Simulated assay, not measured.
Amino acid sequence: MNKVTIQSPATVANLVCGFDILGMALDQPYDIMEVRKLDKPGVIITSLDGFPLPADPAKNTAGAPLIEMLAELDQPIGFEVIINKQIKPGSGIGSSAASAAGAVVAANHLLGNPFSKEDMVRFALFGEKVASGVKHADNIAPCIYGGITLIRSIFPLDIVSIPAPRLYVTVVHPQIEVRTSDARQILRKQVLLKDAIRQWGNIAGLVAGFVKNDYDLIGRSLEDVIIEPVRSMLIPGFDEVKAKCKEAGALGGGISGSGPSIFMLSKDLATAQQVETTMKAIYTRIGLDHHTYVTTINQQGVKIIEHAIL
Rank of each mutant, 00 (worst) to 15 (best):
T5W: 13
I6F: 12
N14G: 03
P29M: 13
D31W: 06
D31F: 11
D31H: 13
V35S: 11
R36K: 15
D39Q: 11
D39F: 14
N60I: 06
A62R: 02
G63Y: 11
A71P: 01
D74G: 04
F79Q: 04
I83Y: 06
I83L: 15
N84C: 07
K88Q: 14
I93L: 09
A97R: 00
A97K: 01
S99H: 01
A100Y: 02
V104S: 04
P114Q: 08
F115I: 07
F115G: 04
E118P: 01
M120D: 02
R122I: 00
A124I: 08
F126T: 02
V134W: 08
V134M: 14
I140C: 01
A141P: 01
C143V: 09
C143H: 01
G146D: 10
G147D: 13
I151R: 02
P163F: 07
V178D: 03
R184I: 08
Q190N: 12
I197M: 14
R198D: 04
R198Y: 03
N202K: 07
N202T: 01
G205W: 12
G209K: 01
N213M: 05
G219N: 04
F238P: 03
E240S: 05
E247Q: 15
G249M: 10
L251K: 02
G252K: 09
S256D: 08
G257M: 09
S258L: 02
M264T: 11
L265V: 03
L269M: 12
L269D: 06
A270R: 14
Q274I: 00
E276L: 09
E276W: 05
I282K: 06
G287H: 14
T292F: 09
Y293A: 04
V294H: 07
V302P: 00
V302Y: 09
I304K: 13
L310D: 14
L310A: 09
